[in-house]
Each structure stands twice: as C-alpha cells, then as structure tokens.
C-alpha cells in the first residue's frame, strides 16, 4: 500500500515536472501562432523597422516602440550599473557588519515593491523633477513624462537584480585571493579593481545582462511615466512608447481592429525572444564562471 502510494506520487510528480518546459514551449508556440496572421501579410523586417503606426490603416511599424524600449533601457542601465556595482562592492568589501545587515532587507524590499507603486512614485516625484527642474536646467521643454523619467524609475527597479547577482559573484571570489593581493602591498581598492572585479568579470557581465532583461520587459512602471507617444525620441527629455507599454495599453481596442491583436502578439513574441536570449546568455556566462571558479 505504501509503495503503491509512492508509485502514484512518483508518476504525478513526474508529470508536473514537465510543466515548466511545456509552458515555455507553449508560450513560444502560442505567440508565434497568433503572430502568423500579420506575418503572412507583411515581412518581419518591415514590421520591425517600419516607423508608421496606424492600426486603422493596417500599418504596423514597430520601430518607434523598439527605439522607445531601447532608449529607456539604455538610460536605466547607464544609471543603474555604476550605482549597483559600487553598492555591491561597498557591501561585499568595505561595509561594516551592521550596515550589511541593515542594507540586505532594504534591497530585498526594493525588489518586492510592485511596479505600479514605482509608477505612482515616478508620477509623484520623478516626472515633476524632470519636467520642472532638469529640463529647464538644460534649457529644454519637457512635460516630465519622458525617457529620462522612465529610465530613472527603471534604474531603481533593477538595482536589486544587479546588486544580488554581483554580491553572489563577489562572494565566490576567494578570501585567499584578496589576501594575496593585499599582502603584496596593494590597497583594498587596488585589490578590488585588479583582482575581485577581474576575477568576477564574467559574473558581473551576467548581472548586468540580467538587469538589462528585467528592464527590457518591465511594463507598468515605465508605462506610467514615459508619456506613451509613438514617435522615435530624439532626446531623453522626449516622451517614448516602449514595447511592453504598447501591449498593455491597447488590449481594449485590439479586438475591434483587424490584425491589431496579431500585431500585439507579435510584439509580445519579440519581447519574449529578446528577453530569452538575454537570460540564456547570462545564465550561460554565469555557469561557465562557476565552473571556472571550481
């Protein structure tokens, strides 16, 4: 009886274990299936690099949205990477114990805050800051709903991702290696710069890529502060319309306009593929780095 139970449980568990793989494949397949309608009529590259977006006229050019995503992601990474890495170095190499213990839960919480809350905060603080302080400072007009606002909010959202992975990478660099550099008369900073960062380089790249892919797919927070104007932004003070926002904003209309739903599903597929490639790349690099560390 006990063994029968064991057998049944085993079979059931085996079936469930197939779920994650099946889910990935069915997402890919499902989105591809839905995108077919539009891909049958238009070329993929024409869709990706076309800049006209007029669903009612049957014109679907993704370029403004792709550029919007790229701009916002780029600004976010420019801000987030140095700040996150410096924080991670500080926490792993310099900070006294009580600061580490205080900071850890704060970073966990930062990771746990829902993206709409980031969005609300962005509207309350970052948008006016960009529109009323930064833009006049640079002598330009901006409503505040801009690439820069999206980038700033997004940067804060990816801090925890980059910091977490970077901390793991730094802790995998052995204590002895640091001591070796120190005992040659190097300062702590020199040890970090020449030894820890270099030894962890692959892992750091992976951390950045993971942050990047998180930023790339983030939807709500960005959507709320970025302005959502379907034009290729010319400066960071211009509004943008990133790809995820496009999908989220238009589910209401998409059923009534022909091909619209197919276009949006294609957008989701593109998003999925890009994030997939980023993630796989990062995992691969991390795995290789781990193997080398052993």
């Amino acid at each position: 009886m006990r063994h029968l139970k064991d057998l049944i449980a085993r079979r059931a568990m085996f079936l469930l274990t197939a779920v994650p793989g099946f889910l990935v494949l069915s997402m890919l397949f499902g989105l591809l299936q839905k995108s077919r309608a539009i891909l049958a009529l238009k070329s993929f590259s024409g869709l990706l690099f076309g800049s006209g977006w007029h669903p009612l006229k049957g014109e679907f050019g993704f370029l403004p949205f792709l550029m919007g995503t790229l701009w916002v992601t780029l600004v976010a990474m420019v801000l987030a990477v140095p700040i996150s890495l410096l924080t991670a170095v500080y926490l792993s190499e310099y900070a006294p114990k009580f600061i580490r213990e205080f900071t850890k839960p704060v970073i966990d919480l930062l990771a746990g805050i829902p993206s709409v809350v980031y969005g609300v905060w962005g509207v309350l603080m970052i948008v006016p800051f960009v529109g009323k302080v930064l833009a006049p400072l640079f002598g330009v007009y901006s409503s505040g709903y801009s690439v820069l606002s999206g980038g700033i909010v997004l940067a804060i959202m990816v801090f925890p991702t980059i910091i977490h992975v970077a901390l793991e990478v730094f802790s995998s660099v052995s204590h002895e290696l640091r001591e070796t550099s120190l005992s040659l008369g190097a300062t702590k900073w020199e040890t970090v710069k020449y030894v820890v960062l270099r030894k962890g380089l692959q892992g750091i790249i992976a951390a950045v890529v993971l942050g990047l892919s998180r930023a790339f797919g983030e939807t709500m927070a960005v959507l709320m502060v970025v302005g959502n104007v379907a034009k290729i932004p010319k400066s960071v003070f211009d509004p943008a319309y990133p790809l995820p926002a496009l999908i989220a904003n238009n589910y209401g209309e998409m059923m009534s306009v022909p091909l619209y739903d197919s276009a949006l599903m294609l957008a989701a597929l593109v998003l999925l593929l890009v994030v997939l490639v980023f993630n796989l790349g990062a995992r691969f690099v991390l795995m290789k780095a781990e193997r080398r560390a052993e």
Binding site: E176, L177, T180, S183, L184, G185, V195
Partner: peptide, 28 residues
Amino acid sequence: THIRKKMGLLSQKPQVLPMSVFDNIAYG
C-alpha cells in the same frame, strides 16, 4: 601597505591572480 610589502605571503593553495604569468609577477 608598507608593512605588507615587507612580507611576502605564500598561501596553502597557490593563489594566482586572474591575469597573465607576466602580470602576476609585475603586479606588485
């Protein structure tokens, strides 16, 4: 750093720095 420069440390396991043979010696 001055104190440490006066003393060369040889660890239990060889700890090569993540760089070339040349740069390992030239590091100090």
